[in-house]
Design a protein around this nucleic acid. Structure first.
Lengths: 150, 150
DNA sequence: CAATTCAATGTATAAATATACAGACGCAAA
DNA sequence: TTTGCGTCTGTATATTTATACATTGAATTG
């Protein structure tokens, strides 16, 4: 994987999660497939002009709006087939398991669709919580997501 | 000289000069009559919530970062009117959409109120999930939140 | 008054971060 | 083909920062 891709990943990570130290960032990068050492992470932080403050690392322009700009949303089909692993349902909620570090991208893909079955989404590292209006529509969405995951 | 005076001196120094590391800050404090060690400087930096970035240390608002003070809970009305966009309800759950990166500040404001309608909150980047005891109280809270958002 | 508590600080060192040096790789020129 | 150069990265370690523990001084308590 390229350095540019790694920088993009770092921007996304520090923009969406709290990263307190370089080791934490390094581990998250490894989970995304970037095999790097602390030295490389330090250099990346320098090159990206990141700040470190009370809440961890941050991007220069504040707390970093979402790394995927509004006009650059990933296709939901692409991200689900690439990163989606499994969907579990609990009443009106779906829990979507993704590959490590991909939850935010997947959530953005889902948000971009404006599906009526989706009230809202919440992304962690490898888990997306999807809130649906009711149980029936959750089941419908689950079927759709599972088809996309393949 | 008092700790408060030292903190004021640090604020002035990092606001007016480039301070790249704690030893440099320590030396400048000594020149102003504050006899301190690196450990004390580190503690001061933590207490003042300073950032360290490409140009050295900076004050919390120095780099345009809009995060709120940790020991100063934001007023829920302030954060909702500033960052709140929309509230959706699904059964006993409310999904509050915020501006990018503001979900945690908003959740903090809500948590600080100890409302009986709030069992708990979960914040992502631009989404806060609020769990309520039941559907009726979720509807009540939704109305209140929407009034605050304006 | 002595004892206790608390905040602040220094010392020593653990943890975090930066960087010198060497090697690998790709590319272009000779 | 070889050579030179630039970029990138890892290893080892230098530098910077955070923190455990002990001490001090002031205020409070019995």
């Amino acid at each position: 994987m390229s350095k540019i891709e790694r920088h993009n990943a770092i921007r996304e990570l520090v923009g969406s999660t709290v990263i307190s130290n370089q080791e934490e960032l390094r581990r998250k990068l490894i989970r995304r497939g970037f095999d790097v050492t602390q030295a490389t992470v330090s250099r990346d932080i320098h090159e990206l002009h990141l700040y470190k403050g009370p809440n961890g690392y941050a991007l220069p322009n504040g707390n970093g709006n979402g790394q995927f700009e509004e006009d650059d949303l990933p296709s939901v089909h692409d991200v689900l087939s690439s990163f989606g692993l499994k969907v579990n349902q609990a009443q009106n909620q779906l829990v979507l398991i993704t590959t490590g570090g991909s939850a935010q991208a997947v959530a953005l893909g889902i948000d971009g669709e404006d599906w009526p079955e989706v009230v809202g989404t919440l992304a962690g590292d490898d888990t997306v919580l999807i809130i649906c209006p009711d149980q029936k529509r959750a089941a419908q969405l689950r079927t759709r997501l599972e088809e996309m995951i393949g």
